[in-house]
Amino acid sequence: MNALAARRRHPAAIALLLLVGLLVTGAAYAALAPKQASAATATADQVEHGKKLFLANCASCHGIGAVGTDEGPALPGVGAASVDFQMGTGRMPMTAPGVQVGTKKVKFSQDEIAAVAAYIASLAPGPAIPDGEFTDGSKGDPAKGGELFRVNCAMCHNAVGSGGALTRGKYAPSLRHVDGKYIYEAMVTGPQSMPVFNDTNITPDSKRDIVAYLHAIDKSENPGGLTLGSLGPVPEGLFAWVFGLGIMVGFAVWLGSKSA
């Protein structure tokens, strides 16, 4: 995938990223809606620790004080939720600029991520890390979540969240087996191409229903057997041609050959 990632290098990528940052900032700032599902209360120590971590790992791109550079967007206002999502899913720190930042192995402990989140949240208000109450799928209604998911999410992420293509090499990632917290945070912060689904659009309760739906299909995942990636008729057709026809032809060759 590295070669492909390298191919996605484009002079516009940085500008794009900047734009992302600005928009995320703006969106997140504006998303500070009356009803908030927030859990975090940060201590001064935590903020101080986060600042150190930020200077060591993030400031090269986002600038000292997170004011942004040519390499990375300004972060005041993106909120703790954004930091928790980006670092917690391994998207940040990114290794190389590309059309889209993908997930990698997570490099920081949950405490370190929480510290950086607290530091960023201390710079300007933004969406906070959601309360566990709203990210626990078992407390939601999967059927209602399914309806919301099909209207708001399925067109990009596919009806069962296995992901889909966007324009020019961008993509909506798979949502299978993703922690409810990150699904919630992505909706609130709108990372990269994804639009923001603030709490007035989809209430915290509804967001939990969506998490419940995703977790329900994760659990009862394939009653029919192998799912072939849950990508619809294309892999099914491929399977019929390669394996279906292959096995049939194998038997036909055996049938037509002379016995020893």
């Binding site: 504006a30 998303a31 919301l148 708001n152 923001v196 007035t200």
Partner: peptide
């Protein structure tokens, strides 16, 4: 109104970068 809840939308609900069906 929002699809599928059919609740009305205030202009202030629609923040920049968000999308409503």
């Amino acid at each position: 109104v929002r699809d599928p809840e059919l609740t009305p939308i205030k202009a202030s609900d629609v923040t920049i970068g968000s999308v409503f069906h």
